[in-house]
Write a protein that binds this DNA or RNA. Sequence first.
DNA 1: AATTTCATGTAACCAGTTACATGATTCA
DNA 2: TGAATCATGTAACTGGTTACATGAAATT
Lengths: 186, 186
Amino acid sequence: MDINPEYTPTLLGFALLGLIHQKPRSGYDIRIEMDASPIGHFSNSPGSIYPALQQLKKHGLIDGRIVHRTKLKPREVFRLTNSGANIVKIWLTTSITSADVKYRLSELMLRFRFMENLTEKSDTIHFLTDFTRLTESHVKSLEFQTEQNPLASSYVRLLSNRDIALYHMHIEWAKQARIEFAGSST
Amino acid sequence: MDINPEYTPTLLGFALLGLIHQKPRSGYDIRIEMDASPIGHFSNSPGSIYPALQQLKKHGLIDGRIVHRTKLKPREVFRLTNSGANIVKIWLTTSITSADVKYRLSELMLRFRFMENLTEKSDTIHFLTDFTRLTESHVKSLEFQTEQNPLASSYVRLLSNRDIALYHMHIEWAKQARIEFAGSST
DNA sequence: AATTTCATGTAACCAGTTACATGATTCA
DNA sequence: TGAATCATGTAACTGGTTACATGAAATT
């Protein structure tokens, strides 16, 4: 059982917690789901999913109940425990940092995906607001660096342009998303 | 020595080969360089760089000569072997695939960075042309999927928008880059 | 004398993947 | 009967990181 409050799941672990948060699922359900709409760049192979689920179970973040349906092999359907639900909520609502924007964009997008299941929509708006602010500040520092030292190689300069364009795109995206959320009710 | 023609370096390995291709470097030089301008998301820690260099050396892609400078600890400066230079050239000039565009964008950007050191500039133009074509085709299939099934959740739809915008940005970037290369001489 | 810089390396670990293995049930 | 589907799992490996360790020379 080992309900260790120190344990932090991996990114794949969080993805699985997020899916189980949406609704209880078996490993097989998750594989099917990830096959239909891939999550990040994670593999949906059994060797990937089942050990990760065992890990989460071992640390008491999910528990499984064996379901013997009329036919077929029994399935183990997982749902979040209290501490699992807690850790997901913390993951989704923790303030984002400039390091997240710089190095962990894909994790931020994963978080966004599962914020759907939070009760407070204001959390999403907060996330988008912070994300916009931090990304704007980051892109400014990139542009400053670029104009500061006139880079020797055109290849490096072009890659730097691409990086800057990437973040500009995310700023536009987040602004648009925030407008949609601010506009809608609920 | 083990000059195994079957061996394919890892992505970090290719990054190191690319740097050494630019000019002979020691592990320490590489760490300093990666500290100044990070490559991908690779760590510049010694435990990251030195074992990777040993691996490349073991497979005969680089060789090191110990340089005793006037003072300080002797350095091992690496340069590409013939087979190392070969493998870099193949890596940089191999036709890109739709899977590269879909799953390995960061590798493509890494390749682009080191194409600077290829003698033929037409290789770069070829790369950019292919990249544009494949990305356009990919983004079209994404857009088709999106309009095909009207996605339930606004969160998933927004993430899908972000994905599409990401690829559009790359198309614009590549077009602009190609114009610059086509316009310049040499 | 003490700290910083140059320079290289090892050991332990972690996340994740591939390939393999199992077995029951349903469908052709 | 044989193939496809449902369903779960293990073993071995790979790539990469962190943390630790070493040591000499240069600088303060």
